[in-house]
């Protein structure tokens, strides 16, 4: 099941790549980073949403599975935020000539990365078990509440980031859509695997 999801996701990714480079290439060519940058950004937000939902579910239902899922989505969110920031930085270097500059989207995606990292640090720093799951869930909730403010406050910055690409052909939108779907499938498979690891770890100790 999990393997199937992964395979479908890779097939979709390759399909989107083929469409992007045959029919939907964006000029100048470096802007094609968008096909990996935008899906990563959407996925990290989706994973943050997952962290929020699972944390609330854990606090209400107290079922261990939600704790595992919350931990997994935070880690996957961290991975996607890393990709988001790296691709963003490479794009910035190519377009504007510098790796990083304080501007709206750049700051907000950096903060997203900090938040995910902070959750992982908190989670790894408990030496005795205690009510670790509760505390991590609480932090997950307030970290997600922080996200909208990240975007609102970043509006204060002068923005050199393109708000969104205007696509001239539907091929381009199709390629991007396919890439987004594929990446979300990849993300859910990763969360699933990570949650299983957490569960096995807990049972073994």
């Amino acid at each position: 099941m999990r393997v199937t999801v992964l395979i479908i996701s890779f097939v979709l990714m390759i399909a989107s790549g083929v469409i992007a480079f045959t029919k939907g290439a964006i000029e100048p060519v470096v802007r094609n980073i968008v096909y990996i940058h935008v899906p990563a950004s959407i996925c990290s937000l989706v994973c943050f949403g997952g962290l929020f939902v699972f944390s609330i579910m854990y606090l209400i239902k107290k079922k261990p599975v939600f704790d595992y899922l919350g931990a997994a989505s935070a880690e996957v969110a961290f991975v996607f935020a890393t990709v988001l920031n790296i691709t963003g930085m490479i794009f910035a270097k190519a377009e504007w000539g510098l790796w990083w500059t304080p501007s709206m989207r750049l700051i907000s995606s950096a903060i997203l990365w900090f938040l995910a990292a902070a959750y992982l640090i908190l989670r790894s720093s408990f030496n005795e078990q205690g009510n670790k799951a509760n505390l991590c869930a609480v932090f997950g909730i307030i970290a997600f509440v922080d996200v909208p403010f990240v975007y609102i406050s970043a509006r204060l910055m002068r923005d050199i980031h393109r708000p969104s690409f205007s696509f001239d052909s539907s091929w381009q939108s199709a390629a991007l859509g396919l890439a987004i779907v594929a990446t979300i499938m990849l993300a859910s498979a990763l969360i699933w695997m990570r949650a299983d690891i957490e569960k096995l770890n807990k049972r073994l100790n």
Binding site: V29, V30, N32, I33, I36, H37, A40, V79, T82, V83, I86, T87, I90, F91, K93, A94, L186
Partner: peptide
Amino acid sequence: MNYLIGAFAVSWAVY
């Protein structure tokens, strides 16, 4: 072009 290949390589490597 190098930047594009770099970006794709890095992100696929991470995944």
